[in-house]
């Protein structure tokens, strides 16, 4: 059994608990053991980044330092925002030794900066990809719009994940899980991110454009890998529909939920009951 470090992040412990649940269930199905970083803290997210850069770096650095201290070499970070913050932080520290020293002093821990930070697509691609198709028992036979958002692909030169515009990695995995990924126009457009509470109107508009394009092109589900995107597209659906003046009810699934269903996990095991937009598919498929 392959053992990897695991950083769930705050959302996966609260509002996106079904993401954590499905990540762990899929990992288990593929004989991967994810060990949570002991005593991890919040990465600081947009708030820290926007208000105080040094604080943002330090909060993320503490997580990296803890993982290193606990002997981890690879850490799985399912939340796209956390994945972005941790990867960017490690990059910034590695390119500036003086900064690394300063941050190390702030967090009172040494940091070497050589962790492999994997998002779920990278995790699946690296450890599961060649076994995925044979494990699929109930193909996810629906048209899906794979939505990547900002944080998985940008900044491209640091994250080095997939191609910048029209990325493909999620589409490929969904196809292997029996789904039919569609070509659409909003794969990497922003959903409104952290404005969910403070500027719900902005989220309704940006997420509305995304949901509408997916719906217009016949998607039966939107697949995501970011708790922020999921909650904006799912939990804010009433506001979205109000903005669009249209009732769109296509569900928003985490990629691990979709893959979990394909490899035979039950809807409950991957936490589908926790969604606001009910995950139901019409019978024609």
């Amino acid at each position: 059994m392959k053992k990897l470090g695991f950083y769930p992040g705050c959302s996966l412990k609260g509002s996106s608990s079904e993401y954590a649940q499905s990540v762990l269930a899929v990992a288990k199905a593929f004989d991967l053991e994810l060990t949570e970083i002991n005593d991890w803290n919040c990465c600081g997210a947009t708030a820290a980044h926007n208000m105080n850069k040094e604080l943002a770096l330090s909060l993320s650095a503490r997580i990296l330092a803890l993982a290193e201290k606990q002997g981890m070499t690879e850490v799985v970070v399912p939340c796209a925002a956390c994945y972005n913050r941790l990867t960017v932080t490690q990059h910034e520290l590695n390119k500036d030794e003086a900064l690394k020293q300063r941050v190390s002093d702030i967090i009172e821990m040494p940091i070497s900066g050589n962790l492999q930070i994997l998002n779920v697509m990278q995790l699946i691609d690296k450890y599961v990809a060649d076994r995925l198709e044979e494990k699929v028992t109930t193909p996810f036979g629906h048209k899906v719009a794979c939505y990547y958002g900002c944080l998985l692909v940008r900044p491209h030169n640091i994250l080095q994940f997939d191609r910048l515009e029209d990325p493909q990695s999620m589409d490929i995995l969904m196809k292997r899980s029996g789904a039919e990924p569609i070509a659409w126009g909003f794969k990497t457009e922003c959903c409104g991110a952290g404005f969910s509470v403070s500027r719900t109107d902005v989220v309704a508009k940006l997420s509305g454009n995304i949901v509408k394009d997916a719906a217009d092109r016949g998607a039966e589900a939107i697949i995501v890998a970011c708790p922020m995107c999921q909650s904006n597209l799912d939990m804010r659906r009433p506001q979205i529909n109000e903005y669009l003046k249209q009732k769109i009810d296509i569900p928003v699934l985490y990629i691990t939920q979709a893959i979990g269903l394909a490899v035979g996990l039950s809807p409950k095991e991957v936490g589908l009951q926790k969604h606001f937009v009910p995950v139901e598919f019409s019978e024609q498929h």
Partner: peptide, 11 residues
């Protein structure tokens, strides 16, 4: 900034 296709039109 970008172009995408929708319903036979290029946005």
């Amino acid at each position: 900034a970008r172009i995408y296709e929708k319903g036979g039109k290029y946005i």
